[in-house]
Computed example of a mutant assay.
Amino acid sequence: MDKNQQAITLLNEKKYEEAAKLFNEVIEESPKDPLGYINFGNLLMQLNEMERAERFLKRAIELDEKAATAYYGLGNLYFDQEDFGKAQQSFLKAIELGLEEADAYFMLGMCFRNQEQWKLSLPYLLRATELDSQDESYLFQYGLSLAQGEILDEAQKTFEKVLELNNEHSDAYYNLGVIALFHEKTKQALNHFEKALELQPDHVLAANGKEIALQYMEQFDDK
């Protein structure tokens, strides 16, 4: 195992000082190799030293303007700082340079979501679900964007897929309840809200949804 791999292992084990020492040695031994700077930048991000992390990642790009993982690291850094416009540009650049990973597409989609550009987020979130169909968070966020873009039939199918992966996902039940309520399927909506509350008793939105559903059932014939 080379020093980079050893340091990454230490980083994953949260042994930050030992990892930093090895990454520093890697940079000293290969000062023109961007990988050491990228890995050190990712370590600094975990330590919340964002300014230093940005410098290391930008140094990697100076050494190799096609360093996709450096742009990906910058995307995560800007996303954590809620600078979604800059994060979006960085993730897009990483993908353009060939970083065909589910999380890169997911994070790019989330940049659009956080700017309330629901429909623009859809192709990227969809691609994330295609690259990793077993990640419930990718599917759920894709479902939310569909719902917020008022593409309700597809949103419903997506939330149902989330429940196939995790039948205790209270937020998926809640959103299915909202869609059912929109389609005036009040009893079905009530069942979804009650299931969400069964799984998460403090789910405020589901409790509100249940109250609305009960009010509808009192006023109109149950559908």
Rank of each mutant, 00 (worst) to 15 (best):
D202C: 05
F159P: 02
Y138T: 05
A196W: 06
D83A: 06
A189I: 05
E150C: 03
N12P: 05
D202E: 14
E62S: 14
I27P: 11
V162L: 08
D2E: 12
A87V: 08
I179S: 09
F159N: 01
K66F: 07
F112G: 04
Q5H: 05
T158L: 07
E17F: 09
F40G: 08
L165D: 13
D222T: 08
G177F: 02
L43Y: 01
L190F: 03
G73Y: 10
D222R: 05
E96V: 09
D132N: 15
H169G: 07
K185A: 14
L47P: 12
A68S: 14
Q188V: 14
K58N: 06
K21A: 12
L126I: 02
Y72Q: 06
K14A: 09
D103I: 13
E25C: 07
D153N: 10
L131Q: 00
G41M: 00
Y78K: 08
L22F: 08
E150K: 14
T129M: 11
P31D: 02
V162D: 06
D135H: 06
T186L: 14
Y105I: 09
E18V: 04
Y105T: 11
K195N: 08
E65L: 04
I151F: 11
K58S: 05
L120V: 14
L190S: 09
Y142E: 00
Q6I: 06
G41I: 00
E130A: 00
A207S: 15
A60H: 11
G75C: 03
Q219C: 09
R52G: 00
K187F: 11
K210R: 15
E54Y: 03
K223M: 07
D222G: 01
D80V: 07
D135C: 06
K3S: 12
Q6M: 13
E101F: 03
D33S: 09
D33P: 05
V204I: 15
G73S: 12
S30V: 11
G149T: 02
D202S: 12
M50A: 06
G149E: 03
F182P: 01
A207C: 07
L131P: 00
Y78G: 04
E54I: 04
K187E: 15
F84W: 07
L47T: 13
E65Y: 05
A70G: 05
L77S: 01
V26R: 01
L97S: 07
E116K: 14
E150W: 07
L205I: 03
G41W: 02
W118M: 05
A155I: 00
Q134A: 13
Q141F: 11
A19Y: 01
N166I: 04
L63T: 02
L44W: 02
G41S: 01
Q134T: 15
E49D: 05
P201Q: 06
G149P: 03
D171V: 05
